[in-house]
């Protein structure tokens, strides 16, 4: 009997393995399919959409009877929502990706195939990023639909900006989550670390900075520089900057940023957020190449 799957006669010399991008696509496709079918995806999408709906309805209701509508409060509500939900979503998705597969031996099996580890990481990242993108776009799309239906005067550009920036934030947090995942030997540890990091970014760092403002009398340029270290703050400031084109809502530090950096702000915020995408992912790739997959 013979195995009929031969793509090449066996007398020929070694077949070339698929190119990197092909493998990345294959793995990303599988990861995306897996994610989209998974419970967490459905849960997160539903939760995000429902919370977004609530925000949209509340802000639309506030305009009742005045013939007025505004996107300000909605923006604030949506930004707040994104700040809470998206990092948690992306961090946990990233954290459970590598560690749980390592724990169950899937990673070793995958690495035993003709793929490189960087391809596996990139593929998984791309797949999860796609799933997160779908989740975010659906959630924000539902919000935008409600706002349009309720006649809230939101500029479509604002909504698209918000969606794009949320996605960028999600990519950064996914990258960080994958780094945690590569670092952790067990999935539970990785998840715990992800939640811890989430808490630190969402609450602890802001509260610490607030304490710094009060106790250390931080100057506003120092405060602004420090807040650039937190990707969530960067997302928030960038969203406000992009949606409202003014940062003065944020008081002296915002005014300082607008006056001092003006048109460069997009660049500054962009570099800060991209750093959170690129650096953890690169670190994860290096570590994954070194560490044993079993």
């Amino acid at each position: 009997m013979s195995v009929a799957l031969t793509a090449h006669p066996r007398d020929l010399s070694i077949p070339a393995p698929p190119r990197a991008w092909r493998n990345i696509l294959t793995i990303a496709g599988r990861e995306l399919r897996d994610a989209v079918r998974s419970r967490w995806f459905i849960l997160y999408t539903l939760a995000f959409a429902v919370l977004g709906l609530a925000v949209s309805f509340v802000s639309a209701a506030g305009t009742g009877g005045t013939g007025l509508s505004g996107f300000g409060r909605t923006t604030a509500g949506l930004i707040n929502l994104v700040l809470l939900v998206v990092p948690l979503m992306a961090l946990t998705a990233g954290a459970s990706s590598i560690a749980s597969e390592r724990e169950r031996g899937m990673l070793a099996y995958l690495f035993a195939q003709p793929v490189s580890r960087t391809e596996v990481l990139a593929g998984k990242y791309a797949g999860l990023a796609g799933a997160l993108a779908a989740c975010l776009m659906l959630g924000l799309g539902v919000c935008a639909a409600i706002l349009a239906w309720k006649g809230v005067a939101a500029r479509p550009a604002s909504v698209l900006w918000l969606a794009a920036l949320s996605l960028l934030l999600a990519l950064g947090m996914l990258s960080l989550g994958m780094l945690l995942s590569v670092l952790s030997r067990r999935a539970s540890v990785a998840l715990g670390a992800a939640v811890f990091v989430w808490l630190a970014l969402v609450l602890v760092s802001d509260l610490a900075l607030m304490a710094g403002v009060v106790a250390l009398r931080l100057r506003i340029e120092e405060l602004f520089a420090l807040s650039l270290m937190n990707p969530l703050q960067v997302f928030k400031m960038w969203s406000l900057h992009a949606v409202d084109a003014t940062l003065d809502v944020l008081g002296p530090a915002g005014l300082y940023a607008a006056d001092e950096h003006g048109p460069r702000l997009h660049l500054i915020f962009g570099v800060c957020l991209f750093a959170w995408v690129v650096i953890p992912l690169a670190a994860a790739a290096v570590l994954l190449a070194r560490r044993s997959p079993v």
Binding site: I14, P17, D34, G105, M106, A108, Y109, A112, Q113, V115
Partner: peptide
């Protein structure tokens, strides 16, 4: 690894 088919002790896959 293109030349290798590998069967583990137990198949670990999704």
């Amino acid at each position: 690894r293109m030349l290798v088919g590998y069967v583990p002790q137990e198949l670990a896959f999704h």
